[in-house]
């Protein structure tokens, strides 16, 4: 079962929910940190990393011996990453989306593939959890391939928990697509509600069942609950606003370890998710 934890708005508590949930579940879990621009899970779990691998994307390299400067590669490239001059071809790797058009179209087989590094992923483990995180290199922009690479390690026999990036665009989609359940973490404020609505629209496009965790209950108003009721989205857990929790978080500690009563709460959260997913599977 794949549970993707998302939010729309950043800073609502995705990582808190992902890490505490993963640690509370008493079956085999893999936890993927797919917020590859700003991966934070490792700060809370301190996993032992035993393997690191680069995430690469192919970019063209032109064999000028074979090239006839026919410009077909330049014309097929919709990203403007190639400039065919009279006696030279320039490749702008930063603009390349690795679509492979230039390789395919070249009639002289003069376009070779060369690897470009986008970032890396690390494999590790902590407290029985298999952990994988991605990290975008500074200045790079191709996020979805890193997320897809992490997700290629999904083990169908395990519970897979994904910590998704904020927002609603391509990186988020890559982290939510084809999940069995999307857990949306929000906060009861106007910003939280507004971005929750966007996240719910995203989930609807993907057609995946979802539920809510409302974090910092008490800090704002109850508009989020009213919205959830109206939209028929189950509120699966509420975490009260508590400065103590904020301080635990600030130190990089786990709520379930410092406030053990939360362990049962996160276990209940998982049970509810499993029920919803089970029902859907049963209904098929």
């Amino acid at each position: 079962m794949i549970i993707s934890i998302a939010s729309g708005k950043g800073g609502t508590g995705k990582t808190t929910v992902a890490t505490n949930l993963a640690l509370s579940i008493e079956s085999c879990v893999q936890l993927f940190d797919c917020d590859v621009e700003e991966p934070n899970v490792h700060l809370f779990l301190n996993p032992v990393i035993h393997k690191k691998e680069p995430v690469i994307a192919p970019v063209p390299r032109i064999d000028l011996e074979k090239c006839t400067f026919c410009k077909k590669c330049m014309n097929i490239c919709r990203y403007g990453a190639l400039a065919v001059l009279k006696k030279d071809v320039l490749v702008f790797e930063n603009l390349c989306h690795s679509c492979g058009g230039c390789f395919e179209i070249c009639p002289e087989n003069a376009v070779m593939e060369k690897d470009r590094s986008l970032g890396d992923i690390e494999h590790g483990s902590v407290k029985g959890i298999a952990f994988i995180q991605g990290r975008l290199s500074i200045g790079q922009v191709m996020v979805p391939p890193i997320i897809k690479k992490i997700r290629s390690y999904t083990d169908p026999n395990l519970i897979t928990i994904i910590d998704a990036p904020p927002g609603t665009s391509c990186p988020v989609i890559a982290a939510m697509n084809k999940a069995d359940f999307i857990l949306l973490v929000t906060e009861p404020t106007p910003f939280g509600l507004h971005d929750l609505k966007l996240a719910v629209e995203t989930v609807k496009i993907l057609g995946i069942p979802c539920g809510l965790v409302i974090n910092r209950v008490g800090i704002g108003n109850d508009e989020v609950n009213r919205y959830a009721e109206k939209e028929n989205i189950p509120v699966l857990m509420e975490i009260p606003f508590d400065k103590k929790i904020a301080q635990i978080y600030s130190r990089g500690e786990m709520i379930i370890e410092k406030m053990p009563e939360y362990k049962t709460k996160f276990q209940n959260l998982f049970k509810k998710i499993a029920q919803i997913v089970g029902k859907k599977e049963g209904g098929k």
Binding site: D35, E37, E38, F44, R251
Partner: peptide, 30 residues
Amino acid sequence: PGIGCPVIASIGQATAILIVSEPTVSGIHD
């Protein structure tokens, strides 16, 4: 948020960046 495509697009040719941080492990890392 983040450091990817939209962030890079938001800083080109800017005069200066103000980073709003918070005193948490993740706030510092990011």
